[in-house]
Simulated scan of single mutants.
Amino acid sequence: MTDPISNRTYAIRGTAHQAHRPEPGLYLVATPIGHLDDLSLRALDIIAGADILACEDTRVTGKLLKRYGIERRMAAYHEHSGEKAGAALVETIRGGGSVALVSDAGTPLVSDPGYELVRAAIEAEVSVVAIPGASAVLTALAVSGLPSDAFFFAGFLPAKEKARADRLEQLLHIPSTLIFYEAPHRIAASLAAMLEALGDRPAAVCRELTKMHETIYRGSLRELAEEFAALETVKGEIVVCIAPPAEDAPPNEADIDGILEGLLAEMKPAKAAQEAARLTGLPRRELYQRALTLKDDG
């Protein structure tokens, strides 16, 4: 069998190409987030030509290699690899070798392993090179229809309700489009939490980007939360985009108190906060705390 290291080739639509061995360094190679044709020629050359291909999951990367006829030895590098695995890769580079790092999908380090390896490479004063390409964050932002001049990527929200609410409260006043990754089995609960914490804003839920069943849901957070709450099951990888806070000046404290006092005369604090959130677009959690204070003050 041919040695995969010496056989530095890849194939595009049946035509074989010879890859070049890269200069010593760590190469951060973006891979497709779904559609396997979304891989640049430069990325192919680095993946096929590097001395070591470090990947998050060898089974996932193996499918990509098969698609392009690449025969490579792969080294697993993931969040549980530990410092020794990273140190060994850096030593390979110091000895004149090249290491290509790929994640399961998209750009390495974006909610994926690799940060510690990059830090170790920089401290060792070896070359670190990005090979740009697909990114679920930017793809979702582009198709969301929401402001794209400034955005804040918040990764995955905590799974536990209290921690999730606390994290969303930290993001409440950020004047940028917010972008989250979310698991399909948590999307309904997360949308409900986003509505409660951030108020009703324009949003988009982007599912299975670049894949056969790509679907973009656009609407208000309230509409999306209700839509996903009604679904029995949700499948696929999901990115959520939420518009920045409204530029219009929010009601002042006196106005808010007046609304809440009127509602508290007829309903309990939780229901009053829910109705006030609908009227003002402000977060229900914040209004509920104010309602409790007003009720205690009589």
Rank of each mutant, 00 (worst) to 15 (best):
M194K: 09
E214Y: 04
S220H: 10
L224D: 01
M212L: 13
E223S: 13
Y181L: 11
A188C: 11
T210K: 14
T177S: 11
P202Q: 10
R201E: 04
S220V: 05
T177N: 07
E223V: 02
L198P: 02
A183M: 11
R218V: 07
E227W: 11
T210L: 10
V205Y: 07
M194I: 09
E208D: 12
E223C: 03
Y181N: 06
I187C: 07
E196S: 13
T177R: 00
A229W: 13
R207Y: 14
A193F: 02
L198T: 02
L198R: 06
A197W: 04
S220Q: 05
E196V: 10
R222Q: 12
R218P: 09
F228E: 03
E214P: 04
I179K: 04
C206E: 01
A189P: 01
L224T: 01
L209Q: 08
L221S: 01
H185D: 11
A189R: 13
A225C: 08
A225D: 04
A197N: 00
H213R: 15
T210H: 08
Y217I: 00
E214M: 05
A188G: 08
T215Q: 14
Y181H: 07
H213M: 14
A229N: 12
P202A: 10
A229T: 13
M212R: 15
V205F: 07
F180V: 04
I216N: 10
A225N: 06
R207I: 09
A204I: 06
I179Q: 00
P184D: 05
G219W: 04
S190C: 13
S190H: 12
I216V: 15
F180C: 03
L178N: 08
E232T: 12
T177P: 05
E223H: 09
L198Y: 07
A225T: 07
E182G: 03
L221I: 10
R218Y: 12
S220D: 06
R207K: 12
R201M: 05
G219M: 05
G199S: 09
E223T: 12
F228V: 07
E182D: 10
G199T: 04
E232A: 13
R207F: 12
L221T: 03
L231Q: 15
P175Y: 14
S220T: 15
L221R: 00
Y217S: 12
T215P: 02
L231R: 15
A204P: 01
L191R: 01
E232F: 00
I179P: 00
A230W: 02
V205H: 00
E208Q: 08
R218S: 13
T210I: 09
F228A: 03
L191V: 04
Y217G: 03
K211F: 06
A225P: 03
P175S: 13
L198K: 01
